[in-house]
Amino acid sequence: MENKYKAKLGISIGDTNGIGPEVIVKTLSDNRILNYCTPVIYASAALINKVRKILQAEHFHFQQVASAEALVPRKINVVNCWEEDIALEPGNPTPVSGKASLESLMAASKDLKAGLLDGLVTAPIDKDNIQSEEFNFPGHTEFLTSYFDAADSLMLLVSEDLRVATVTGHISIAEVPGKLTYDLLIRKLTILLESLKLDFGILKPRVAVLGLNPHAGEKGLLGSEEIEIIRPAVMHLKERGHLVFGPYPADGFFGMGLYKKVDAVVSMYHDQGLIPFKTLAMETGVNFTAGLSVVRTSPDHGTAYDIANKHIADETSFREALFLACDIIKKRTAEQIHAV
């Protein structure tokens, strides 16, 4: 069924020498997408034309516009973020591709902040190649949290049957124990519970919390974080009526399929959550930044330089990111109308 409201979705191009441009063009080559949203690609018409020709995407057509204020409904719109004709060097991160990814992201974020867009879908950046005076962040999540003046945010990986959040994000394993505190865990769990209600329509979400240490610390034998930090945070939220459980040993929790019995799982660090998530939902997974005033999603993969320009990149995750953004925008809009 065709949606009545067509969300205006900004799309940042990501690193131009990765697979971002390819999965964007592949996704938008299916014109049925226009029944759900008005896509706005932030790049340049010349670059998009190059990618279209390389992919021989004969069903992909776009409208070049001067700005997001001049969007053409029921068309793929392209906003020029640079005038020069940049070279494509698939598989090789270059200063040019890093600069282009930053200019695209900044332009899309600016328009989103100005209310010209309803949401943002970000193609993968090279976290090292994009670094500059304007971008001194470990990744999209941290940049957008700062740019949109959020007190905090939460990386939430989403698929049809699984949602996994991470308490700590893009930091080294060595830093995790020092960063993990009771207050941080309460803050992240609160963001998750609110997002599950607002963005996913789950009135009474069930959340499982993983331990930090092997076997969830084995009653303190293998670590004290579960006793001193994680369990007290879980009990605090339980006492306030939330369905929060744990801490669970991470390996057994996923090995026994217990994730199927809850609405979301909270991991203590990046790989603890993302390894099982990507094992179970690599092609369909979406990265959603919970806790922001705006809607931002992305595919759950990186630049994949090794397969860039080989025409084999799977666009499923990017397509799912686009659809999830549309769904969340629709839910938030309905909630705002209901509140009035």
Results as ranks from 00 to 15, higher is better:
residue 32 R to A: 13
residue 33 I to G: 12
residue 34 L to K: 11
residue 49 N to S: 15
residue 51 V to I: 15
residue 56 Q to Y: 13
residue 58 E to F: 10
residue 60 F to E: 09
residue 64 Q to H: 13
residue 66 A to C: 13
residue 78 V to E: 06
residue 78 V to L: 02
residue 78 V to A: 08
residue 79 V to R: 02
residue 79 V to Q: 06
residue 80 N to A: 13
residue 88 L to W: 13
residue 93 P to V: 15
residue 95 P to A: 10
residue 96 V to M: 12
residue 97 S to Y: 07
residue 105 L to S: 02
residue 106 M to C: 00
residue 110 K to P: 01
residue 111 D to G: 00
residue 114 A to C: 04
residue 114 A to F: 06
residue 117 L to Q: 08
residue 118 D to I: 03
residue 121 V to C: 10
residue 124 P to K: 05
residue 127 K to V: 05
residue 128 D to L: 14
residue 129 N to L: 06
residue 140 H to K: 10
residue 142 E to S: 04
residue 143 F to V: 03
residue 148 F to C: 01
residue 148 F to T: 01
residue 155 M to T: 06
residue 156 L to D: 06
residue 156 L to P: 04
residue 158 V to N: 06
residue 162 L to Y: 06
residue 170 H to C: 04
residue 170 H to G: 00
residue 179 K to Q: 14
residue 183 D to Q: 05
residue 188 K to I: 07
residue 205 P to R: 01
residue 206 R to I: 00
residue 208 A to W: 01
residue 208 A to P: 01
residue 212 L to E: 03
residue 213 N to H: 05
residue 216 A to S: 11
residue 218 E to P: 04
residue 222 L to K: 04
residue 223 G to A: 05
residue 224 S to Q: 13
residue 224 S to N: 13
residue 228 E to P: 03
residue 229 I to C: 10
residue 231 R to E: 15
residue 233 A to L: 09
residue 234 V to D: 13
residue 234 V to N: 12
residue 238 K to E: 14
residue 241 G to I: 05
residue 241 G to H: 08
residue 243 L to K: 12
residue 248 Y to A: 01
residue 249 P to T: 03
residue 260 K to D: 00
residue 261 K to G: 00
residue 266 V to S: 02
residue 271 D to Y: 08
residue 273 G to L: 02
residue 275 I to W: 10
residue 277 F to I: 04
residue 310 K to R: 13
residue 313 A to H: 00
residue 319 R to S: 15
residue 324 L to Y: 09
residue 325 A to I: 13
residue 330 K to N: 08
residue 336 Q to Y: 12
residue 338 H to R: 15
